[in-house]
């Protein structure tokens, strides 16, 4: 492959999963119509979902899931040492995600509730960046395939990808959606990073903040708006803590 005379290298990639639902990994293997082109531009050397073969000679590691056990820490550190670029994919890896629910209760209660008579050694939920240095966060729950492909194109070209800094509202208005607030629903769109084409509000479902907060989001103003509209703090708290994207605003 060449771009304006520059020879482009096919990066060798590995895809790895930690604590999570594997939905983000599945997204990468999804969408047959572009899969052929995708594999033309990258060389997959380690990806359990598409091949049982695997080697550790990769340049870019896409890592899904949050970190909850010590063995995961060791495995992640090994990946970090190998990869030139480490990309956290999905809300679990970037934010802690839904798994973070666990951190709201005493650990012993959680272990007892989930594992009963067969307890396992599990710790609090951590984001990848709490354990190793992360080069790129690819947000979303799950990640979007088109955004993943966009990221791959940037990596092949050697460009640092720039994610939208603006909130979901921009793209929501561009879809000509009715504002879900007008329909009485709560929405975190005004403080959540855009780039998802407002897929939830488009389907009349308020935003839950899976992509993390937008740059310099105005939380005070949003809290004022939510309370003025009669949402209870308990309800608000449940929403903003869901993906662990807005720590400490309520």
């Amino acid at each position: 492959m060449k771009y304006l005379g520059i020879t482009l290298e096919r990066p060798k990639i590995g895809v790895f999963g930690f604590t999570g639902c594997e939905g983000c990994q599945l997204q990468i293997a999804n969408k047959e119509e572009t899969l052929k082109n995708l594999f033309n531009s990258i060389e997959v050397v380690n990806f359990r979902e598409i091949s049982s073969d695997g080697c550790d000679d990769y340049d870019v590691a896409f890592v899904e899931g949050s970190i909850t056990t010590e063995s995961e820490v060791t495995r992640l550190q090994k990946i970090r040492n190998q990869a030139k670029i480490l990309v956290a994919i999905g809300a679990c890896a970037c934010l802690g995600g839904v798994n973070n629910l666990k951190s709201r209760f005493p650990l012993s209660d959680v272990v007892k509730e989930v594992y009963g008579m067969h307890p396992v050694d599990t710790g609090p939920v951590r984001r990848l960046q709490d354990v190793v240095s992360v080069d790129i966060d690819l947000p979303g729950c799950p990640i979007s395939k088109s955004e993943f492909e966009w990221l791959v194109r940037n990596l092949v070209l050697g460009i640092k990808p720039q994610f939208p800094q603006y909130p979901v509202c921009v793209e929501c208005k561009q879809q000509l959606n009715s504002c879900v607030f007008d329909m009485g629903m709560m929405c975190l769109g005004p403080v959540t990073r855009g780039g998802c084409n407002a897929i939830c509000p488009r389907n009349r479902f308020g935003c839950w903040g899976c992509r993390g907060h937008s740059e310099e989001a105005n939380f005070e103003s949003l809290m004022r708006i939510l309370r003025e509209r009669g949402f209870e703090d308990e309800h608000i708290s449940e929403r903003i803590n869901f993906f662990n994207a807005f720590n400490g605003i309520l």
């Binding site: 304006l4 520059i6 050697g158």
Partner: peptide, 16 residues
């Protein structure tokens, strides 16, 4: 930035 970085990688003969 992004574009200037790419420009710096281009060699004589490239079309812009």
């Amino acid at each position: 930035g992004k574009v200037t970085g790419m420009l710096h990688r281009l060699k004589a003969g490239a079309i812009v």
